[in-house]
Amino acid sequence: MTNAGRTGLLACAIAVCASAAMAGANAEQCARPYLAAPYSDCNNDLVADLPADPALWRNPPTLVWAYAPIEDPAVYAELFKPFTNHLGQCLERQIVYYPVLTGAAEIEALKSGRLHFAGFATGSTVTAVREAGAVPFATKGIGDEVRGYRLIAVVRKGSPYHKLSDLAGRRVAHSSPLSNSGNLAPRALFPEQGLRPDIDYMPIMSGGHDKSLLGLVAGDYDMAAVASDVYERMADRGMIDPESVRIIYESPLFPTSSFVYAHDLDPELSSALERCFFGFLFPPEMQAEFNGDTNFIPLSYKDSWATVRDVMGRANAMAE
């Protein structure tokens, strides 16, 4: 090994040790109201620190991961096969994809240690960080461009509803409690448009964005609050006909799903995982499914999720 290589390894080791020391030196002093116990955040990046004791770091021979159940989990199990295989070769260990049925189940699996890394929906990312020690490190994009999605309000084309305030007293589908565009953003943003959840209408939890849209088309709901990227994917697959519906509201742009690892992964493993993520180019089927996204991009949770945290704070304040 060259002197430069030895110097690099030494610098890396020092950085890891310094990070661990920071995490544990004043764990109680670094407890934060935005993180559940026992997580701490000494460097104020809003995510849980690495445990100070290396004995608590995990580096298992088999890694289990999951992706947000925004739609049918079976769709993603097949779609991510090339990526799962890539990770297995890149990390030289077994990688198991575990389909989860709800965002809450995914968060609990990460918290309990059954998942080592995962892809979370936008709103669930915040809950996973706060309650399960998730460390977001990547999102999807094109090259260096991070793209997003919007909350949209969709009605049937022939309906008499043209603005949100027209939906007072009607059947409005939300997707699930932890969903950003499917529940939290409507609660924060719809009142500005004259439509107050739980007052002007009682949200009906459909169980998913796809279920909200299919229920809308079937006549079960008068309006569906969903993510624009899910709407676009379903239209591309022919699951809904864009000519049969109308979009009467669009929100500002939100970031897309995040990819996280558990805060207690061995730093060498988490670094290798990041390297393998960022070295993967989406095959054509993944690009088609994810609206043209081509690769994973590094993210800063503190910066990229600021708008989402604000929306969640406003939604929770309105619910109190």
Rank of each mutant, 00 (worst) to 15 (best):
P191N: 05
V75M: 13
S175Q: 10
G169K: 07
Y301Q: 02
D241Q: 03
N26R: 13
T2E: 04
P73K: 14
A315C: 14
L101D: 01
V260E: 07
V100T: 04
R275H: 04
T125A: 08
K81Q: 02
V154R: 10
A132H: 10
T2K: 06
S165E: 00
A74K: 14
F290E: 12
G169C: 08
A20G: 12
L91M: 00
I240G: 07
R246N: 03
H209P: 09
S176E: 11
V226N: 03
V47T: 02
N291C: 01
D222P: 05
D200N: 06
G169E: 00
V47K: 07
P38F: 01
G141I: 00
G194V: 00
T256G: 12
V217P: 01
G313F: 03
N3I: 14
G113A: 11
D45W: 04
S40E: 15
S175P: 01
P298G: 00
L281H: 15
V308L: 13
D236C: 14
E106V: 03
H174D: 09
A134V: 00
A20P: 00
E78D: 08
P69E: 05
D144T: 09
Y221P: 10
T7V: 15
R32E: 00
R170K: 15
K157P: 12
V217I: 03
F277I: 04
E78S: 13
T122G: 05
